[in-house]
Every structure is written in C-alpha cells, then in structure tokens.
C-alpha cells in the first residue's frame, strides 16, 4: 500500500524552525553571560589575542634590534617594559613572544584534538585496535612530558615547527584517552544499537552519532591542552630546547632574564605575567565551558 505524501506548507515550517533556533540562541547567550569563569576567561583570551595581533604594530622598536647603549633599562616611556641585556625592546619582544606562544598553543590544541579524536574514536569502536593504540599511548604517557619533548627536540633540531611536533606528540595520548573513555560510554547506549538495527554503517555511527556526543569533553580537554602547550613551550624555550634565539618567546625571554633577575627583574616579571595570564585565562575558560556544556551541572537558567 502506498503512503500518501502530503504537501507541507514549507514557509510555515521554516518560520517555526527559525523561532526555535532564536529561542535556543537567546538561552545560550544568557547562560554564557551568567557563567562567570567562562566570561572572565573569554575576556582574558580576547585581550591576549588582540595584544598578540596588534602590539607588534604599535611599537616602533624591532624585537631583534640591539641598542648597546640602552642595555637593561628599566621600564620608561620610550621602552614600556624596559630593555633586555642586549638593549632590545622588551615590550616588542613580549608582544612577538605572545604571537609565538599562542600560535604554538593553538596549533598543538588543534592537531592533538584531530589526531586524538581519530585514535580515540576508532580505539573505542574496534577492540583489537584499542589494545594496540592504548598500549602505544601508555608507553608515551609513561615519559614525563618535558623529557619526551626535550628528546624529540634533540632529534628534530630547534625549530618552531618542531616545538609544535614535540608538544603534540607528548599530548596526543591524553586527548585519545579522554575521547576513548567518553565514546566507550556512548557506544553502549541503546540508540547506537538502534542505529545498527536500522542499517547504519560503522563509519556513520562513529562520525555522525558518537562524535557529536563526545564533543563537549573533547572541547574542554583541548582548552586545557592549549594551556599546557603554552607552559611546555615556555619550559622548552627556557631550557634552550625550544624557540631558538634570537627569536623571542616568553620562555627564552625568561631564560635571558634569569642571570640578571636581581638587577633587571622586569625581564622576568613581564613574560612571566603573560604566561600566568594566558594559562589562567584558558583554565577559567575550560572550567566554564565544562559547566556550560555538561547538561548535569546546568543551573536552570531560563
């Protein structure tokens, strides 16, 4: 018997759809504004991003130009953050360092998210693959991050790209673990079995149905990875294994300032402050996001 296809008033439907969409968006904005940590985190991150983008443009000094006469000058109207032991303008160096740190952090976050997602999803779905991939992850996680990153840098050589590779390799297992454990839970849900009974292929189940259900823990984890990547990059540069001199990064400015910490404390204070701000901002943002995205911790704001 043939079912009759009724013509539906399409205009009416799209109107309705828009209305519910607007309603949902309004609720989301409201919840965002009510969540103090995500709000503060966003403000800090926004400020840092604007700083990294525009600060190098407003300062007349090049981050690499040395003025021997002006070495280790305290902050002044000419040099806002003072100068370092080669007479280079510290404001300009910190601003350029912000670009480096944020770029490294963001690249690491994005790459670990993608690779960790693929590994975690497939590991959760195929048990043989699970055993192999998780043992590899165990092995990688057995090393302290900084040691593993230093070793990789030693092999690959000091290049900004290699810093990204080193930190990414150290952090992929963490993301893969989080993705795997969340998707193991989702995989056992009845709706996944129901989907199988409707003839959905594994590809479709993994990417279309498991993925959206684990996005929130992934996003939260990735903001933390972003923060950790900034710290790791700074640590590597501080140890001399990261961004190579003379290019500035928050880590190697700290390294330069280490010897003169009692004579020119501004060399330690300014980059250190920025590292703290960046990490604090990201962590607040991540915490807030976790509360926003987790349906169980929602305070009912209507």
């Amino acid at each position: 018997m043939e079912l009759k296809t009724t013509a539906i008033d399409n205009v009416n439907i799209s109107k309705l759809k828009n209305k519910t969409k607007l309603e949902r968006r309004r609720l989301l904005v409201k919840r965002f504004l009510f969540n103090k940590s995500v709000l503060i985190g966003t403000i800090i991150l926004l400020f840092l991003t604007l700083f990294a983008l525009f600060a190098p443009l407003i300062t007349p000094h090049s981050p690499l130009a040395m003025e021997n006469a002006n070495r280790l000058q305290p902050p002044s109207s000419e040099h806002w953050f003072g100068t370092d032991n080669f007479g280079r303008d510290l404001f300009s160096r910190v601003a350029n360092g912000a670009q480096v740190s944020l770029t490294v952090g963001l690249s690491v976050a994005v790459i670990t998210a993608i690779v960790g997602l693929i590994i975690g999803l497939y590991a959760s779905y195929y048990s043989l693959l699970d055993h192999i991939l998780m043992r590899v992850c165990d092995a990688l996680m057995a090393f302290p991050d900084i040691l593993l990153a230093v070793a990789i840098m030693a092999v690959l050589g000091p290049q900004p790209v290699n810093v990204v590779i080193a930190v990414t390799l150290a952090k992929i297992p963490v993301v893969a673990r989080v993705v795997r454990s969340s998707s193991l839970v989702v995989k056992e849900q009845t709706y996944i079995e129901a989907l199988k009974s409707q003839g959905a292929s594994s590809w479709r189940i993994i990417w279309k149905h498991i993925l959206p259900n684990i996005l929130s823990p992934l996003i939260v984890q990735v903001t933390y990875i972003f923060a950790i990547a900034i710290i790791l990059e700074a640590s590597l540069s501080f140890l001399g294994a990261g961004i190579p001199a003379p290019n500035p990064s928050w880590g190697n400015i700290l390294l330069d300032g280490k010897i003169v910490i009692f004579n020119a404390s501004w060399m330690t204070i300014f980059p250190g402050m920025f590292i703290v701000f960046a990490v604090l901002g990201l962590n607040l943002f991540g915490d807030g996001l976790r509360d926003l995205l987790d349906p169980h911790s929602n305070k009912s704001i209507k």
Binding site: Q189, T190, Y191, A194, L195, S197, Q198, G199, A200
Partner: peptide
C-alpha cells in the same frame, strides 16, 4: 546493512534511550 532498517526493522524496549 541493506537489510537492517530496510527489510527488517526493530523497536527496542527502552524508548527513553533509543534516540540520539
């Protein structure tokens, strides 16, 4: 895959959790 959901379908006990 071509038979499930197309020629043979199944309804589950737990309607509460059977939808994504």
């Amino acid at each position: 895959l071509g038979i499930r959901g197309n020629k043979i379908s199944m309804i589950f006990q737990d309607a509460m959790t059977s939808l994504n």
